[in-house]
Each structure stands twice: as C-alpha cells, then as structure tokens.
Design a protein around this nucleic acid. Structure first.
Length: 319
DNA sequence: TTCCAGGACATTT
DNA sequence: AAATGTCATGGA
C-alpha cells in the first residue's frame, strides 16, 4: 500500500483502495454539515445515507461520484464509488472541491471570538459550534439557485431547482439511484422562456436565468474573471449590473460561491424572521435595526447570517 | 382564503 | 432619493 503525504492540501491517498483521508480544521462539525445537506427531501444535487454524503462532481470533464464519510474528529474520508484508479492531479482536484464546498480552510477563530460575548450570537455559536457555510462552488449553479429563490418559499424553490436540473442537467445512475450534474450555461443558453415556464418558473426568472447562461457561455461572465477583481465589493457591483441580480442575489452569491465572509444579504426574509424570533418580537426588525445589530459582526456578516438561518431549522431534524 | 416567501425592477411621488 | 406598484406561484 502506497500512501503519499500532500503537504499543501493536507490529505493522504491510497492508490489501491481509492480512498483519501482529508484533515478537517479544529472547528468542523460533520453533524451540522449533514443537517444542512438533508434540510430538503427535494435536494437532487447530493444524497445522504447512513451518514455518508454522495455527490456527483465533474473533474477534468469526467463525472465522478464521491462518497464522503466521517472518520474521527480531525479527518473525513473521500471514496470514489467506482473504485477506478485515478491520477494524482484528479485526487487533488477532488480534495480541493470538498475543501471548498465545506469551507475547510476558513479560520473561524475571529468569528467565535466575536460571538463569545455577543448577546445574540453566543448561544448560536455554542449550539452550532463547528458549522461552516456550505458553499456552491459552481457560479452558474449559485446564480441560478439565488434567482430561483427570490421571493418564493424554500420548499417551492427546491421543487423548481429539481425540475430545472432534471430537465437540463446530466444524470448518472449508480446503485439504482440517479445522481445529477447541474446544467451548464451551454445547456441553458439556447432554451426558450416557455421551456422554463412549463416548469412553473415565472417569466422574469426564466429571462434572468437564460440571459445569465448566455453571458457565461459567451465568456462575458465567469468566476475566474470576477476573482481577479480588486475586492469583493468590485465583484458585487459587477454582478448587480446584470439583469435579475440585485443586492440580495449578489451578496448571496458572494457568500455561497465566492466565499466572502463579509457578504451580507441584508433584507433577506429568513434573516428577518430569525431575528424576530431570537429577539422575541411581534414584528420583523427594520433594515436600519438589522444594520445596527450586525455592527459587531463586521467582516463576518455571512457567517452571522448563516448561523441565524440555522436557528430556523426544526429541532427534530436530526440526520 | 389569506398571507407571504432566503427580491428585482419599473413607476410614481 | 424614496416610496409605491407590479410580477407571479405554491406552501402553510
């Protein structure tokens, strides 16, 4: 058995068994990860069973179904379900994907330091300790999901996403279950508004998503190009120039895709609900009050929002 | 049935 | 600039 140590990526892999052991940071909760990933039964882009996470990802134009499992407090396993030998660079890409997906490189110490003596965050930070923002690394997916989620309840949003993925994504069968790759811009750039209206998308959302697909297919919009911007604020202002992308969507994508810890989807309906419940109010707080409340959490607004969202999860939802 | 949901945009003051 | 109206559909 050959085991090689990757200094930079903190993982070891075994060429024979096709498994990789990945180090996780000091504050990482596998349980919270599972809880987030199982919050909707309509989710079609990953599957959780017996505390294993299954996801189809594309590495070097090849669909690969990965299985993620908890090992001990400081490691998780990644296994390839087809068990075919893979090149070392492919393994590096897979590990990089998971680290990006679960935000494993983030040092949460500053956030927990703020939370420690904060009247609103201290209990959440303790209750959900180790919870990290689950990302959406693919920009097209992040934008589509954000646009879909505008002004509708999450249940319906998941229904729409499932219809969209099953209509334009790429399926892969394994063990009598279908796994999906999210549609690519080129799969959506040429469809018609009516194709999405059939799936119960509103005309506006259909137009937004098709237009975004066209921009990305033509190379006028890409994650790589945006990442070369001077800062996250520059990315935000570029995103907002696109039709259908307002302040909420831009900040949501900064939070889930670009991993800006200071992204702040202020005005988010669920955020208002969470604060209303936490403050034991009869009415939702105003935008001005939310700004005041968030003042201590500067540069960590995205994490504060994610922990507040988490407070809305039903307590009986144990994975 | 009514209200509203992890908004954006156009129109009117 | 800021307030108001419109879109538009299902979930609870």
């Amino acid at each position: 058995m050959t085991i090689r140590q990757q200094d930079m990526l903190n993982f070891k892999y075994e060429e024979i068994t096709g498994c990789t052991l990945v180090d996780v940071p000091y504050a990482f909760s596998y349980n919270e990860t599972l809880l987030y990933l199982t919050r909707s039964t309509m989710e079609c882009l990953h599957h959780v069973e017996n505390r294993h996470i299954y996801k189809l990802i594309e590495i070097e134009h090849e669909p690969i179904l990965i299985e993620i499992s908890e090992s001990d407090a400081s490691t998780i396993w990644i296994r390839l379900v087809d068990s075919l030998p893979r090149d070392r660079t492919v393994w590096e890409s897979i590990v990089h994907y998971v680290q990006e997906w679960f935000d494993l490189h983030r040092d949460l110490a500053p956030f927990y330091h703020i939370a420690a003596n904060d009247p609103l965050l201290s209990k959440l930070a303790t209750d959900y300790y180790g919870m990290r923002i689950i990302g959406v690394p693919d920009l097209f997916e992040a934008l589509c999901w954000a646009v879909i989620g505008q002004q509708i309840n999450l249940t319906f949003a998941y229904t729409l996403k499932k219809r969209f993925v099953e209509a334009f994504g790429k399926p892969m069968e394994w063990n009598s279950r279908t796994y999906w790759l999210f549609p690519k811009p080129e799969d959506v750039a040429s469809i018609l508004v009516d194709d999405l209206k059939k799936l119960q998308f509103t005309s506006k959302k259909a137009e937004y998503i098709i237009h975004i697909a066209q921009l990305m297919q033509q190379g006028e919009l890409s994650k790589h190009a945006l990442l070369s911007s001077s800062d996250f604020k520059a990315i935000e202002s570029q995103l907002i120039t696109i039709r259908g992308i307002g302040p909420w969507t831009a900040n949501y994508v900064l939070m889930r895709c670009f991993r800006d810890p200071s992204a702040f989807p202020i005005g988010d309906a669920a955020l208002q609900t969470a604060l209303k419940l936490l403050l034991n109010r009869s009415q939702k707080p105003s935008l001005d009050e939310i700004k005041q409340l968030f003042f201590p959490w500067k540069e960590w607004e995205a994490y504060a929002v994610f922990y507040l969202w988490r407070s809305l999860t039903p307590v009986d939802a144990t994975p």
